[in-house]
C-alpha cells in the first residue's frame, strides 16, 4: 500500500483517536501529523507481519502515550501555518461532552474506547495495546458504563 492511500484512508480515524486522547483539536492534529510522519518514515520497514491498520494504530497509540513526556499544556509544534491554522467548527453539545468525558478517563482507557468507537475490532485493539482480548472486552464494557453514568448524572437520558 502506498503512503498516499494510507494517508487518505486513515487520517480521519487517526485524528479522532488522538482527539479522544487529548480532547484538543490542535493538539490532536499535531499528534495525527506526527503519526503519519512516522508512518512515512517507517513504511519501507513495514514487513506485513501485522495488518497495516494494526501497525498504524500502534504508532498512533504510542504517539499519544508519548505525550506524557511533554508538559501538560499543548506544546505547539513547528508546522507550516497553512497546516496549523484551521477554523473551529461548531459541534453538538453532546459530542463535546462525549469527548470531554473520554479525556477524563485513564490514558489507556481513552485509547481503548476511542478505538472501539472507531469500530476497530477488539482483536486488533488487543494487538495494538498488547493486552488480552478478554481484558479489552471487560474494559470496554466498564468504560461504556462509566460514560453513560456521566451523561446521566449530567441530566441526559
Amino acid at each position: 500500500m502506498v503512503f498516499e492511500e494510507i494517508y487518505k484512508h486513515y487520517w480521519k480515524k487517526v485524528f479522532r483517536i488522538c482527539m479522544g486522547y487529548v480532547n484538543d483539536r490542535d493538539w490532536a492534529q499535531d499528534i495525527a501529523q506526527e503519526t503519519f510522519i512516522t508512518v512515512w518514515q517507517q513504511l519501507p520497514n513495514f514487513r506485513n507481519e501485522s495488518a497495516i491498520g494494526t501497525w498504524l494504530f500502534r504508532i498512533a497509540a504510542n504517539h499519544c502515550l508519548r505525550q506524557l513526556e511533554k508538559s501538560k499544556k499543548h506544546p505547539k509544534e513547528e508546522f507550516p501555518p497553512q497546516i496549523a491554522e484551521q477554523e473551529e467548527p461548531s459541534t453538538d453539545e453532546n459530542v463535546r461532552l462525549l469527548y470531554q468525558y473520554i479525556s477524563e478517563l485513564e490514558e489507556v482507557d481513552r485509547l481503548i474506547i476511542s478505538m472501539e468507537l472507531e469500530e476497530i475490532p477488539q482483536a486488533e485493539i488487543s494487538k495494538v495495546l498488547g493486552m488480552t482480548e478478554s481484558n479489552i472486552r471487560v474494559r470496554i464494557h466498564r468504560i461504556k458504563e462509566k460514560l453513560s453514568q456521566k451523561f446521566n448524572s449530567n441530566g441526559h437520558e
Binding site: Y7, W11, R16, Q33, Q86, T91, N94, L98, E118
Partner: peptide
C-alpha cells in the same frame, strides 16, 4: 456522537 466529530481537513 463519536462520529459527529469532524476531523480537521487533511493537511
Amino acid at each position: 456522537l463519536w462520529n459527529k466529530q469532524d476531523a480537521i481537513p487533511q493537511p
